[in-house]
């Protein structure tokens, strides 16, 4: 049996009101589940206390893998397995291998990072998202607060949201 979760949703109309609101609400000790916005807002992740994404590190590691694979592929094929004399150059002619090494690095870094992003954010064509308020992909900013994770009552939370600029407060049960 799944435990039903009860959420309080604060609807904001403006990004600046939201930014200040989120900051102040968190200072009051309220735990915010997540904030849904129609576009990226710089600094909102810091305001919510999220750590910086480690995706750039993933990209670097995938890029390093691509670089190593591409270079070693070319050295092993043209340099070791079947050496060919091309214009009297060395069989494993590193300067000539740089373009493909670069392309391999970019290919692996891009696909590896995007794949990691999809997995860590649970994005896939078959994923069934929980949509708290459909307007959050249009023009509203939704602050979702999980009732069970907060000591305050429903009414107190609504009161806090309204006093920090929410234009409406809704409830949602999952």
């Amino acid at each position: 049996m799944s435990v039903s979760k009860h959420f309080i949703l604060g609807v904001f109309d403006d990004e600046d009101v939201l930014m200040h609101g989120v900051h102040d609400i968190r200072n009051l000790g309220v735990k915010i589940q997540e904030v849904f916005t129609p576009y990226p807002i710089h600094g909102l992740d810091e305001n919510l206390g999220y750590k910086r994404s480690r995706l750039p590190m993933a990209a670097f590691l995938f890029g390093l893998t691509g670089c190593t694979l591409a270079l070693s592929m070319m050295i092993s094929m043209n340099g070791i397995d079947w050496p060919m004399n091309v214009g009297g150059k060395p069989n494993a002619s590193i300067p000539n291998f740089i373009p493909i090494t670069f392309e391999g690095t970019v290919l692996f870094a891009a696909f590896g990072m995007v794949g990691t992003f999809f997995v860590s954010s649970g994005l896939a064509p078959w994923s069934k998202p929980v949509i708290f308020d459909k307007r959050s992909t249009d023009d509203k900013f939704i602050v979702a607060i999980d009732l069970s994770k907060n000591k305050l009552s429903k009414d107190e939370l609504s009161q806090i949201l309204m006093s920090h600029g929410a234009t409406e407060v809704n409830e949602k049960e999952l």
């Binding site: 997540e34 904030v35 999220y50 860590s120």
Partner: peptide, 13 residues
């Protein structure tokens, strides 16, 4: 892809 526009996802995006 099940995008919802959560702040965490935007940060990664």
């Amino acid at each position: 892809f099940g995008w919802t526009g959560g702040a965490k996802d935007w940060s990664r995006y």
